[in-house]
C-alpha cells in the first residue's frame, strides 16, 4: 500500500481553470480532480493533466464508484479508475460513502445509505476490493446528508470509523459536509469529529454550502460554489487540532 506523500493546501481543479493553471502555475501544494472527468481515451484535457502532474502532486477524487451499491461493484468502472491511477500516479485516491448506480443506471449524485451492519459489510467488501485492485489505500469521504433512514443502526461517524478499522482505508473528512449533515439531520459536529479516528484521516475537504428553503424549513445544500461559511472555518480549525496537519 502506498502512503500519503502530500501536505499543505490543494485546490479542486475544474475543467474551465485548467488552461489558467497550466499558464500561471500558481503556488498551491497539490491539485485534486474528479476521476470521471479524465476517463476519456485521449484528447487535450487528459494531456493537460499529464503535464500538470509533473509539477503538482495529484489527488484523484472519484464520484462514480458507488461503494454502497447492494448489487455489486461496477467492475468495468473500477478497471477504468485503475487505468487512470496507473497513468497519473496520484498521491491520493478518494471516493464517497454513498451509492449512485442501481439496475445499471448511473444517477450522478451521492445518494444516502442506511447505516446498518448489513450496509457496513457491503461497503467494507467493496472498499477492500478497490484497495486490492489499486494496490493502495483509498480515502472514503463523508457525504452531505439530507435524510436519515428510520432503520439506521449507528451514526455516520461510527460507520466510517468502523469501516476504516475493518478495511484499513483512510477517511477524507469533509468539514462542510459534516456541518451540512448535522444542521439538516440534527447532530453535533464536534461529536462527529470526536468519533473519527485521527490516524485514519488522510485529507480534509473545505467547501461552501447554500442555505435553501424546503417546505418552509431551512435546509443546507452542499453546492461547491458558495464561499466557506464562518462556522465551517471554525470546525476546520477544530478538525486540524484533532487530526493534525492533514492535506486540505
Amino acid at each position: 500500500m502506498q502512503t500519503t506523500a502530500v501536505a499543505g493546501s490543494g485546490i479542486g481543479l475544474r475543467a474551465p481553470h485548467v488552461d489558467e493553471i497550466v499558464a500561471t502555475r500558481p503556488a498551491v501544494d497539490w491539485l485534486e480532480v474528479h476521476a470521471e472527468n479524465y476517463m476519456m481515451a485521449g484528447g487535450p484535457a487528459l494531456r493537460a493533466l499529464e503535464r500538470l502532474r509533473h509539477d503538482y502532486p495529484l489527488s484523484i477524487h472519484g464520484v462514480g464508484l458507488s461503494l454502497g451499491s447492494a448489487d455489486g461493484l461496477d467492475v468495468a468502472h473500477l478497471e477504468r479508475l485503475a487505468r487512470l491511477v496507473d497513468r497519473l500516479e496520484p498521491a491520493l485516491v478518494s471516493e464517497h460513502l454513498s451509492w449512485s448506480i442501481v439496475d445499471g443506471a448511473y444517477l450522478n449524485h451521492l445518494l444516502p445509505l442506511p447505516y446498518t451492519d448489513e450496509t457496513l459489510a457491503i461497503v467494507s467488501a467493496h472498499v477492500a476490493r478497490v484497495q486490492d485492485r489499486l494496490g493502495r489505500r483509498l480515502l472514503v469521504e463523508n457525504p452531505s446528508g439530507y435524510l436519515r433512514f428510520a432503520g439506521a443502526e449507528m451514526p455516520e461517524a461510527e460507520f466510517l470509523a468502523t469501516l476504516a478499522r475493518r478495511t484499513g482505508c483512510g477517511l477524507l473528512c469533509d468539514v462542510n459536509n459534516i456541518h451540512v449533515t448535522c444542521a439538516n439531520l440534527g447532530g453535533d459536529p464536534d461529536a462527529y469529529l470526536a468519533a473519527l479516528p485521527p490516524a485514519a484521516v488522510g485529507e480534509i475537504h473545505l467547501a461552501g454550502h447554500a442555505v435553501n428553503d424546503a417546505d418552509g424549513h431551512e435546509i443546507l445544500i452542499d453546492d461547491h460554489g458558495s464561499p466557506v461559511a464562518p462556522a465551517v472555518w471554525s470546525l476546520y480549525e477544530r478538525a486540524l487540532e484533532r487530526f493534525g496537519p492533514a492535506p486540505a
Binding site: H109, L111, L147, F149, A152, G186, A214, D215, H217, I219
Partner: peptide
C-alpha cells in the same frame, strides 16, 4: 425518518 421536514421533501432534495 421524518421530523420537522417530511420524508418526501427530504427525498426531493436528492
Amino acid at each position: 425518518a421524518g421530523d420537522a421536514l417530511a420524508p418526501a421533501a427530504r427525498v426531493a432534495v436528492y
